[in-house]
Structures are given as C-alpha cells and as structure tokens.
Nucleic acid binder design. Structure first.
Lengths: 106, 106
DNA sequence: AGTACAGATGATTGTTTAGTCATATGACAC
DNA sequence: GTGTCATATGACTAAACAATCATCTGTACT
C-alpha cells in the first residue's frame, strides 16, 4: 500500500481513539520522559501486564511508541516527534478549557 | 472551579474521544475553512440534524468549536487556535505512519 | 396568538471497545 | 532440554458509546 492509497479517515480514528483511553494515556504519560520495559510500566501505573501489552500494541500500531528488545525485556519509548508537541498543544488547550470541558457549561 | 482544581485526566479523555469519532471528525473537517450553521453542516456531510446537534454539543463542550446565534440560525466555527495546529501535526504523523496504522504491521 | 423554520434534548437500542482470564511464545540460564 | 522470567495473544464479558426516534424549545414572521 502506498501512502497515497491509505484511508486517512480510519487512521485518524485509530490515532485519536488511542489517546482517548485513560489507561493508554497513563502509559504514554509514564513513557513521556524515559523509555521503560513492560514490567516497569506495570509498576509505574499499577496496571496488569496483559492489559499493558494489549494497549502498548495499539499504541505501537498507531506509531505513538517504538519498541526494541534488550535481552529478555522489550523497551518502549514514545514517538517524541509527534507526542511531545501534541501533548504540549493539548495541555495548553485544556488549561484554557478544562473547566468548560468538565462541567459542561455553555 | 479554578483551573488548578480541574481533573485533567478526564479532560484529556473527553478531548481525544471527541476527535476519535468519524462523524465528529467530518464535522470538524467541513468547518475547517468556514463557519456554518447546523443545516449547512447537515448538507455538507449528509448527516441527520439530530446527530449533528448531538455531536456539535460535544465538540462545543470540549472547546473545539464556538457558536453564535444569527437570527434563526446558530453558526459554528472551529477553535482555530487549537484545531489548526493540531490537525497539521496529526496530518504529518499520519502521512508517515498511516500504512502501519491501517495494516497493523509491526 | 399561530405557523414555520432552526436547532436542542432525552430515552432507547445496537455496536464498539476495553479489561480480564487462560494460555502461548520468546529469551536466557542451567 | 527444562525451568523461569518477560511479554504477547485470543476469547469472552461487561461497560461505554453513538445513532436514531420522538419530542421540545427558540426565533421570526404574519
């Protein structure tokens, strides 16, 4: 499949859907500053291993994290090029609108 | 509620969840370049009015669109400050990763 | 006040998603 | 090869979501 033939719409859905889940967002957050293996992610987040693996798979799938094996462990790191500016942008948005977001006021 | 007391995590979920839905994304897309009222959005997208209203409510709720009444109509426009750079960022990401995203290759 | 147009809301239902359990694979050490 | 640690996968169920339907509110015009 060439990039031109890709179905961009579906890709958008997968991309944003990946960040919409609270647990995946937590995983991204603990990886924000340093790479970690699955066990370390579990410890940092308190999540179960299978759940973390499932969610890492999805994040990897969307190009949000990269991974590499080191001996018995597989280390994951965020795709800094996308994730860092994205989170920065959204942080600013939420700082400004979070109250509206959470209360639903119009 | 002051910004400091906000529950940011929930806000992130609402924010990204809003963009994860294909129909909401279409609505954002047709508003990307010009403001439109609900009827016009329906015409541009082919969606039903009630569905559009429900989804606009959510987008408004997240600070992604703003609205103002003009006579009988209510016009919606995107929050350019957030949406434009966001979409630009994601466009670049997806151009690079969409094939992986859609095929699931590792 | 009555009608018509524009949009919003609430309830219901079918679909999607996500966490959990059981199990499988992969890598290393002995 | 066997055991153990690290991670991945598939199937299943429960919870979340989103579209639809029926109905309601708001504005303008007469």
């Amino acid at each position: 499949m060439t990039p031109k033939s890709c179905n961009y719409d579906a890709a958008y859905g997968l991309f944003f859907g990946s960040l919409a889940n609270h647990n995946r967002f937590s995983i991204i957050s603990v990886l924000r500053d340093e790479k970690k293996n699955v066990t370390e992610i579990c410890e940092s987040t308190g999540f179960e291993q299978t759940m973390v693996s499932h969610n890492l798979k999805r994040l990897d799938h969307c190009g949000m994290v990269f991974s590499e094996r080191e001996g018995k462990c597989r280390y994951y790191r965020v795709n800094e090029k996308t994730i860092k500016p994205l989170l920065k942008l959204i942080d600013a948005h939420i700082k400004k609108y979070c109250c509206k977001i959470l209360t639903g006021e119009r």
